[in-house]
């Protein structure tokens, strides 16, 4: 176990040792046969630097172009599009809420108007009806009063008539009574005077 683990350990140690640029060449020599690839510790092999920088410049430049011209605008478009959409939807919702609120207020107002109008109509009708009833009543009362007066006048007239008839009858009756009792007729003027005197009493 120790025999096989040993070489691996030394390899690691060797790499740890020449992990600095200064020691690159020493490391190459000590390690050269180890992996057969030859050359210095790869990250510090300066012969590859120029090539890597060139290819990095090409590909990173390409990436920068692709990102700044194509990819970032696309993603930004989506992200900002969503933000705009949300803001737009919110504004729409706010507008609709205001509209429904206005509609509700208009409904309330219409309701209140209708109610006050109905009240006006009701009170007008009530006034009109009570006025008509009043008129009717007054007219009927007047008619009744007229009839009463007419009736009272007729009664008065009839009474006067009756009273005058009574006098004639009384005079007749008195002359008849005097004739029967006395056997002779009394003067008419005297009988009329006596009847009038007793009627006046």
């Amino acid at each position: 176990m120790t025999e096989t683990a040993g070489p691996a350990g030394t390899i690691i140690l060797a790499q740890a040792e020449h992990a600095t640029p200064a020691e690159t060449h020493a490391g190459t020599e000590a390690h050269g046969g180890g992996h057969g690839g030859g050359g210095a510790f790869p990250p510090f092999d300066s012969s590859t630097f120029a090539g890597q920088i060139l290819w990095l410049a090409i590909f990173f430049g390409l990436l920068y172009l692709l990102m700044s011209k194509v990819a970032i605008p696309r993603v930004a478009n989506i992200v900002e599009g969503r933000a705009e959409r949300i803001a737009g939807d919110l504004a729409e919702a706010r507008r609709l809420r205001a509209e429904s609120k206005a509609a509700g207020e208009a409904y309330e107002k219409a309701l209140a108007d209708a109610r006050s109008k109905a009240q006006t109509i009701a009170s007008e009708t009530r006034e009109r009806v009570s006025k008509e009833a009043d008129d009717n009543r007054k007219r009927t009362e007047a008619e009744l009063n007229a009839k009463l007066e007419a009736a009272a006048a007729q009664i008065g007239a009839t009474k006067a008539q009756a009273l005058s008839n009574v006098r004639v009858i009384a005079v007749d009756a008195a002359s008849a009574i005097v004739e029967r009792l006395a056997g002779a007729s009394a003067p008419a003027a005297e009988i009329e005077r006596a009847v009038d005197a007793s009627l006046a009493r």
């Binding site: 790869p42 012969s47 590859t48 120029a50 060139l54």
Partner: peptide, 28 residues
């Protein structure tokens, strides 16, 4: 076997297309 276990092997830069300093390598 030593090459397969060599932990440094993975950092090797190998030309894939072309030769010399500016060859198209595995890094590229």
């Amino acid at each position: 076997m030593a090459g397969a276990l060599d932990p440094i092997h993975q950092f090797q830069i190998v030309p894939l297309i072309g030769e010399g300093t500016f060859a198209f390598t595995n890094s590229a």
